[in-house]
Design a protein around this nucleic acid. Structure first.
Lengths: 206, 206
DNA sequence: TTCAGCAAACCATTCGGTCGGCTATTAGAG
DNA sequence: CTCTAATAGCCGACCGAATGGTTTGCTGAA
């Protein structure tokens, strides 16, 4: 296949990838110029694909959520037919992302760092709902889903402040949370509010 | 008590409080000028107390960690003599901070948004270690501490993307995690790495 | 009287975004 | 299939606004 000198789709991807790297490294405050240079394009060129900085950040957040979702799906063991397989994929994908150090600040911290950009908050709310629906089809009870997913997220952030050496803690958490998806009894006897529908209904969209 | 027109300690506090509010509201990228105006002082006046923006942000992060620690201690039930009382204080303080909406982006998200400033990362590492030592004195087994603390942190971030209506989820998580501190059996049978010391030794301080 | 606390004008730099121009690519006419 | 006109992709200079930080000078406190 001939290498085209101008390939807008490829350029867009290049920019998004560079943005992921740079933002992870220097925080969400980076200038579009820095991102552009990291991607090997001019600022003008970048702004041709993303009409404003906010639009770029929004697209970046969207892209990261998508990529993470893909990682989760890829981490689901196809041979695994037991209840909780989806949740196990989530756990594996999360911890592997930290271990591989795809980025020092990976998806959780990054999205937190970017949440003030218009539109991102709404985006993440929808994403959260998608995960709810996803896990609702997993066959597990709500309690286990919530505890394990939240603990995974919490471990992800905790993994950021690493001296670089608590691999052991992360490894332990990974195995522990995976094992917890097979638990035969509830972790505690607490009844949920009677009027609580889960996953949260999306009827409150105006 | 007479109100002094010039009170450096009070001014410093005012600035820190204003910074907390403003950063929570508009993200970590706010200008020192904005913070200064929110605090009712001039930029020059602010820079008299904090020699640079980074120093201000660092002091801010330090202050937030301190405040949160104080909230945790205040949330420990003095009549509670059972094992896990410290952890229960942590859970209560975290969820109450979300509920009271002290800030839309409270301590976890905020620190994540600010982690790229020089010194903050180191600061949070030390803070994490302090919590480890704190909880190690709690009498609970490592497994419960880790799961419950991480789940609490995870729930804190999840609480940010609220449509404003999953109070029920937060309330449920709060009660659930509190109940889990009383669990009589392990959540899962996973052995920890043999060569793992916890809390992590602080000998790696150079 | 002296100095810390603070204000306000000031400065160099950087930022997000626009604009005009150049060129690779493509659609369409012949 | 070829030539051409139109367009999309991209660059780099440019602009006004905003930013972090400095300086100068005033004033209340000790």
């Amino acid at each position: 296949m001939a290498v085209r000198e101008r390939d807008p789709a490829r350029t867009r991807r290049t920019v998004l990838d560079a943005a992921t790297r740079v933002v992870a490294e220097k925080g969400a405050g980076v200038s579009i110029d820095t991102i552009a240079r990291a991607a090997g394009v001019s600022k003008g060129g970048l702004l041709h694909h993303f009409r404003s900085r906010d639009e770029l950040i929004l697209a970046l957040a969207e892209d990261m959520l998508e990529q993470f979702a893909a990682m989760v799906h890829a981490a689901v063991d196809p041979a695994d037919r037991a209840e909780g397989r989806l949740l196990r994929g989530y756990v594996r994908a999360s911890f592997d992302a930290i271990r591989d150090e795809t980025s020092p600040a990976e998806h959780v911290a990054m999205t937190a760092a970017v949440v003030n950009v218009p539109g991102v908050s709404e985006l993440m709310r929808r994403d959260k709902q998608r995960w709810e629906e996803f896990f609702a089809a997993d066959g597990l009870d709500l309690q286990r889903i919530l505890v394990i997913q939240r603990a995974t997220d919490g471990a992800s952030i905790a993994g950021l402040y690493e001296g670089g050496h608590q691999h052991q803690e992360l490894a332990y958490m990974r195995e522990l949370l995976l094992a917890m998806t097979y638990a035969s009894t509830p972790f505690a006897d607490v009844q949920q509010p009677a009027d609580w529908s889960w996953p949260s209904v999306s009827t409150d969209v105006e």
